[in-house]
Structure formats: structure tokens, C-alpha cells
Design a protein around this nucleic acid. Structure first.
Lengths: 333, 333
DNA sequence: TACAAAATTCGAAACGTTTCATTTTTACTA
DNA sequence: TAGTAAAAATGAAACGTTTCGAATTTTGTA
């Protein structure tokens, strides 16, 4: 049905190998180039990637593994990654593991079985030795968003610690002394880093930390809602709260609204990630934004480099800077 | 490096074709079955899908095309689809077209070039004749969420019209007469259907429709926010509002909270799609929920059937029922 | 013009499967 | 027990590429 390289060769009156060479960017006599190009056009020839892959041992496919497809932060990143990969003739197989550590391993192995040429993943489990299986087979892996200690691997993440530091510092500089923080799950890397920033800035300013103002949730709307209410019940309540991801920020805002708390008069609030939300909330929300596009593009680019066999500066860590967008949701005391 | 069927054959002491037959579920003498199984285990043999695909002309890959990876409704569906497909040894290539009609076509053709065995897509453009190219090549396509008239194609969607009808009817039965509706973009199928339901129920109850209470947005948070504010400024304002997707519901709730409007006393509200959100909002939100899991699983199942060559009852339309979850956000007048 | 060197082209083998026609083995019947 | 039909196993060809050494053509130089 579809034209093959053989058809093109016949049509152009050259050998198969010459056509192959042309397709792969090799040098070909001018006269032949024209005839081959003409033949390709006339026959609407497309390389059969399967046959090619069989010979070259490459599938031109990248595996992507994230905790949940329902987390907009990750899916946005994927969107940007895909952009870059597509331009380089790679397609992506996206999997999520529903925050399930077992499934994480299963899906990783599924991707390996699919013979992807590279993998980009957001790891959850601390012990992901199976990554080394990929390296053994010469399949590069790039980690996103979270770092795993003891693993030699390229990583792209944001400077969570300083993101948190700067946000809380902003509150401190405005006179706040009792600052609540709504964190993610204790065992997740980003949680730990964001909490470290909170702690470090307190230390740097010689402020006492009240453990009751540190709450751990699940990075979902419900957590944000519940934990903000809990914070308000502490005595004395915090004068400011820092929420450390998008979904929890939505929840927190809902809680604030419900309780009829006046922002920023009664409570200063700094949220996370979603600019659109920040603009819509009144008064406009101050937020920490992560460079989503840059994360996606950087990860894709480094993976492409590794897949080309370029292991220069391996492993490299890209710690991208966040931005603190100041809105009207924080006030001076 | 990796073991091939040849290695397995040698190890088991049978011919390649016997192994192949076994792998593909053919009958094999008991004695050989054992030896082959043993060999496969010992050598950790995995079928090379590329080689197989080259022979069988199948890639065991399904293409998925959605408007945006940042819309949680679509990504959730994908998550469930993938589940079913994975169990059937299919993997998925997910693409979005960023709500761009041009890109929609480009990505569709990209998927075709990748030689996917089937495509599941949420169409935007009205004129998608290029779908027929897929059918010509015997590649089944299943549409999701939106129907395109004039196209013979399996479709899985929700009964948008009656979803809307029932939601608004609920308001009417409670005495509301001025009911606002926040719709999506005018040219999108779901918008049209949901609006039809709104109109039909008004007709059935012989109620006048005030066009000023019908607002069109972009299915994003900002639209929901802005349009709700606009509705409140109509004179007289509506006593109830129906918001027709998740993101706009978030925006609407933000607006309501900002304006310090008391729900349901000052305004009754029915939202869309996200149960988690509905529970968090106080008073609890009434919402229309779509059967996300069922949509995903149905689409995957019908596609699997078509890919097997079973064109029974083609084209079939699955119009799934929504559910109206009543919360405390609506009151009687 | 002739020759060597450089640049291209060519043919054939290989990648790991499936498939089909053929051969071998097994099971059954007379 | 021999003969036959059915079942299973086999070997070889094919899928559409890439790749490599050999063959051919072109280019440059004396």
C-alpha cells in the first residue's frame, strides 16, 4: 500500500542504499538528489519507523512517567516537553502511576519493555534502583521536580528551598512573626525542601518556630481547605500563611472565603503556581510561580542530548529559579 | 544483548516458528510448552514489538488527541483509557493541540505518520474530513466529548442536553424564574448542547428566556469569574446560576466569595464536574458530574473492538448519563 | 590524455519477527 | 499392525530499513 524505499529507488532510478543515504542526510550527487526528492514527493513516501527502528535499535519514542495526570503542574510540563521532542521527531508515551509506589515501578518497566529511547519521570519512591537497569541498557533517564539521593541521574527541578525562603522572607520583612505553612506529604522531596526554606529563613532572622503552624497535607484541594481552617484555630492564629502548591491554594482560598476572613487585613496569604488563579482572586493573590515551560524544555533538551550519546557533565542538576509575584494579599503589620 | 526468539528456540530445542506460535497463543505440544516457557524465563525474553510490527503492520500504539493537557477533565479521561489499553498491550501517544485548529490537523497527521493502530480524539474543528484518511487506511477513530455532524464515526459523550435540562429544571422546580447560565465558547459542541437543555426546559415550563442571562466564556477560570460578576449586574439579577464546566465553576465561586454573596440565600449555584471542589466549598456545591471513568473506559473498549476488525454496529454513539449531585448551594424561593 | 585519489553508488546481509507451504509426528481406525 | 487423517513442527521467505565492503564514477593533477 504505502510506498517503500524500494519504490522510491525504482522511481528515481537509483539504488536503495542511495535513497537511504539521502534520507539520512548523507551526500548524494545533485542529479540524484533531485530525482529522489521528486520520487519521494510523487509517491508520498514516509520512512517506516518500525523497520528503521529494527535496524537501528531505536524507537524514536520517549517515556514520560508522572504521579498523576490530574495534576495540572505536571501535565503542563509535559505539554512543553512534548513540543521540543516532537520537533526532534520523537513521540512520547505518557503514563501516570496514581501516586502509587508499586505502580511506579510497574509502569517504569512497561516503558522499558516498550523500548523507549529515554525516560523522563517524576519519582516518588526513594528507592528507585531500577533506574539503573535503564542505564545498563544505555537508556538515559531524566528526573523532574524531585531529586533522589544516591542516584546518579540528570535532574531538572526548581529551587524549592529558596522559593520558600523568599516567600516567607517577604512576610517577615513586612512584620509577620507567626507564619503558617501548608506543606505536602512529609516524605515528598518538594515538601522537605519547601519546609527547609521556611525553617532556614526563620533561623536567619532569629525567629522562633512554632511547630503547630506547620501543617502537612496531600497536595490536594481538600487538604488546603482543611489545613487552613486548622491553622486559624491555633492560638494565637498566624497572621500569614504560605501554601505550597496549586491545588492546596485553591482549597485555602475557599476556606478563607467561607470564614469571611478579610485578606490581607485579617490574614496575609501567599499561594503557589497558577497565575490565572492569582489574578482572579480578589484581592489579587501573591504567588510563587515555577518556570513550567523552562522545566519542560530543559528536561526534553537534556534528554535529547543524552539520547544522542552526549554524556558531557553527567549527571547535571538544573535548579531553576522561581518567581515571587506580589499581589495584594499580603500586608504590613 | 537482549534475547531473541532465536535464542529461545535454541535454548528450548525447538524451531523458531514453534516458539512464535506459542507466543501468539497457538497450540504447542505440552512438552514443548514447558521447555519454551522455561527458556523464556531463563533468558528474560521479551518480544521485540518493532520486528513484530514490521511483519504484522501494527504498532500496538493508540494515538490520543485532546484540546489541552491543562484541562483536568480530559486528562482524567485519558488516565482511565490508558488503564484499559495498557491491559490489552497497547500504549498511548498523547498529544494536545492547544485549542488550535491548525495544530489539531498537524497532530492528527503526526499520529498517522507514527502508524498508530487507532485514534481517540476530542475534535474541535467542524470540518475534519481528514478523519476519513484514517478510515481509508483502516485505522479506526473514536471521538470523545464532542460530536461532529456529517462524520461517520464512533462517539462517546455525555448527554449534555439533559444534564443541563435536569440541572436547570431543579432550579425551576424550586421556584427560580430568572436563571443565568455561563456557557463555553459558542462554536463548541458541548456549549451548544448544554445551552439547548437550558432553552428546552424553559420552553417545557413555559418560561420566558432573557438573553441577557446567557453568557459565553472560554471554559477557563477567568471567564467563570468575569461572567458571574456580569450576571450579578443585570437588572434584575438572576436568582440562580448554572455554570457549565469545572474551571469556570472555580472562577464563579471566587467571584461569589469576593462579592460576599450569601449562597444560597442571595444566589443559588450549580457547578460542573469536580466532586472534590464541590465538597470543599461551603455551603456544599450542587454539581453536575460527568462519568469520567466510564467515558474513558467506553472509548478505549470500542476502539479495541474496532482495532480487532469488529465493525459491528458502526458507527455507534454512546451518550452517557450525567449525575446531578445536590448540595446546599440551591434554595427554594 | 591518463592516472590516482576522492567521492558516490551499489549489492547483499542483517535486524527479529510472522507466515505459509512442507515435513514430521501423533492419534485413531480398521 | 498398517494405514490414514489430524496435529504439530519445521524451514525459508518476507516485512522495510540500515550498513558495510566492493565497485563505479567523478575530480584533480601531471
Amino acid at each position: 500500500m504505502a510506498a517503500t524505499i524500494k519504490d522510491v529507488a525504482k522511481y528515481a532510478g537509483v539504488s536503495i542504499s542511495t535513497v537511504s543515504k539521502y534520507i539520512n542526510g548523507g551526500r548524494v550527487r545533485e542529479k540524484n538528489r533531485q530525482r529522489i526528492e521528486e520520487a519521494i514527493k510523487a509517491l508520498d513516501f514516509k520512512v517506516n519507523e518500525l523497520a528503521r527502528g529494527l535496524k537501528t535499535n531505536r524507537t524514536m519514542t520517549v517515556g514520560v512517567l508522572i504521579p498523576s495526570l490530574e495534576n495540572i503542574f505536571f501535565t503542563s510540563i509535559i505539554s512543553y516537553m512534548e513540543n521540543i521532542l516532537l520537533k526532534n521527531r520523537y513521540s512520547t508515551i505518557v503514563c501516570d502511576y496514581r501516586n502509587d509506589v508499586e505502580l511506579e515501578k510497574v509502569k517504569f518497566e512497561f516503558l522499558m519493555d516498550k523500548m523507549v529511547d529515554g525516560i523522563i519521570m517524576v519519582p516518588h519512591e526513594e528507592d528507585i534502583q531500577y533506574i539503573n537497569k535503564a542505564f545498563e541498557k544505555n537508556i538515559p533517564v531524566v528526573l523532574i521536580d524531585r531529586m533522589i539521593k544516591g542516584i546518579e541521574c540528570d535532574v531538572v527541578l526548581t529551587d524549592n528551598l529558596n522559593a520558600s525562603y523568599n516567600a516567607v522572607e517577604q512576610l517577615i520583612m513586612r512584620g509577620h512573626r507567626r507564619i503558617g505553612i501548608i506543606c505536602g506529604p512529609k516524605n515528598v522531596y518538594t515538601t522537605q525542601e519547601r519546609l527547609k526554606g521556611y525553617i532556614r529563613v526563620h533561623e536567619d532572622y532569629s525567629l522562633q518556630i512554632d511547630d503547630r503552624l506547620i501543617k502537612f497535607g496531600n497536595y490536594d484541594v481538600e487538604s488546603g481547605y482543611n489545613l487552613l481552617l486548622m491553622l486559624l484555630e491555633e492560638v494565637p492564629p498566624p497572621s500569614a500563611v504560605f501554601v505550597t502548591n496549586y491545588e492546596m491554594t485553591v482549597g485555602a482560598v475557599m476556606a478563607v472565603n467561607e470564614k469571611n476572613i478579610c485578606i490581607p487585613h485579617d490574614l496575609s496569604l501567599i499561594g503557589f503556581d497558577n497565575i490565572q488563579l492569582a489574578k482572579v482572586v480578589k484581592p489579587s493573590l501573591s504567588i510563587v510561580t515555577q518556570p513550567i515551560q523552562q522545566i519542560g524544555e530543559t528536561a526534553a533538551t537534556i534528554l535529547l542530548k543524552r539520547m544522542k550519546g552526549d554524556y558531557d557533565k553527567f549527571p547535571s542538576v538544573y535548579r531553576l529559579k522561581t518567581q515571587l509575584l506580589l499581589g495584594e494579599s499580603i500586608c504590613n503589620i
